[in-house]
């Protein structure tokens, strides 16, 4: 039948919307500037994406359970502030980094306690801890910028097999998250809880434990993202990580993760979404566009992607409208 065929073609096109947008953006900037489509710039984009990408991977876990974490920017800031203090007091890098990650995970656990133990909406809890964390971080840093020792910078500049370390970390986190989500019992439980926590409980799962774990993971990822950020610009400034949660959510949603839980993926999904956002910024930068236009263009693209996704859902619903028999 003709209408069905049309639908599926439209659907397939819409399904690939993030990929298509990415291709359009690449070709567009490539046509406008010869410096854009080069290997060096590609690596550059990957390095720039790493931090937000890692943040978005953690966010994906939370979004898959139909939650949201508005506090990741603050978690990043607090763990960076503590890490900075430790480094400046002479702690070795190898000792500081695990502490930073542990702090991120602990703050995630704090969110999780309020969400699971007291059944408060994640939005409210993490909005509160977002401000709480920002205040705490400012208190630790005494509202001053902290310049970190040379070691942090060397970490960011280090290469392995010709690829910068931040990219390796990003790849590792992405692959690990993808593996956990698709190939472990815990990962499948994340999807199950996101689809229907009540059904999960009846099936003998422990939704609270799963939700607890995703917030811990998200907090940990925020700390890792902080480390990657510091390795590129080794200073803890008072605005570090501010509003980064919005970018992380946007990247995940761009990659096709649903805010209603149960649908989405790290690979290619979230990683592609994060790359898309960063590529736009990088391209605008190369074209010497007024930096004030970046957020406008970026949010415009996000809005466009969200509209395309909504259109996809509508076509899907239209195609899936109950057809109880096929006319002969």
């Amino acid at each position: 039948m003709k209408p069905v065929l049309q639908h599926s073609a439209v659907l397939r096109l819409l399904h690939q919307a993030p990929l298509l947008l990415f291709a359009v953006v690449l070709l567009g900037f490539g046509a406008l500037s010869p410096a854009f489509l080069t290997v060096a710039n590609g690596v550059n984009i990957l390095v720039q994406t790493a931090s937000t990408g890692i943040l978005a991977v953690g966010m994906t876990f939370v979004l898959l359970t139909a939650g949201v974490d508005l506090s990741v920017g603050s978690i990043l800031f607090v763990s960076a502030a503590v890490g900075g203090k430790l480094l400046l007091s002479g702690w070795p890098l190898a000792g500081t980094l695990p502490v930073m990650v542990a702090i991120g995970a602990a703050l995630g656990a704090l969110n999780a306690v309020f969400i699971t133990r007291f059944a408060i909406m994640a939005f409210v809890v993490t909005l509160a801890t977002r401000y709480f964390g920002r205040g705490l971080g400012l208190r630790i840093t005494e509202t001053r910028a902290m310049n970190l020792p040379e070691g942090m910078y060397q970490l960011g500049a280090a290469h392995w097999l010709g690829v910068p370390l931040p990219v390796w970390v990003f790849a590792l986190v992405g692959l690990l998250a993808h593996g956990v989500l698709t190939r472990t019992a815990f990962g499948r439980h994340v999807y199950a809880v996101g689809a229907d926590p009540e059904a999960a409980r009846k099936a003998g799962l422990y939704p609270e434990r799963v939700i607890f774990a995703v917030f811990v993971i998200c907090g940990g990822c925020a700390a890792v993202a902080g480390i990657v950020t510091l390795s590129q610009a080794p200073a803890v400034s008072p605005g570090l990580g501010n509003n980064r949660e919005f970018m992380a959510i946007a990247a995940a949603v761009l990659g096709g993760t649903s805010l209603f839980g149960g649908r989405g993926a790290v690979l290619p999904g979230t990683v592609l979404g994060a790359l898309l956002i960063q590529t736009i910024e990088n391209g605008l930068n190369i074209l010497n566009v007024n930096p004030y236009l970046y957020p406008i263009v970026t949010s415009g693209v996000i809005l466009l992607a969200v509209l395309l996704d909504a259109a996809r859902c509508r076509v899907l619903a239209e195609a899936g409208r109950r057809r109880i028999f096929v006319e002969s």
Binding site: R188, H189, Y191, A192, G194, A195, D196, A199, A200, A203, G204, L205, G262, R263
Partner: peptide, 13 residues
Amino acid sequence: FPNLSIAENVFVA
């Protein structure tokens, strides 16, 4: 769970 496969639903617990 509609978003999981038949096999995953059977073994989810």
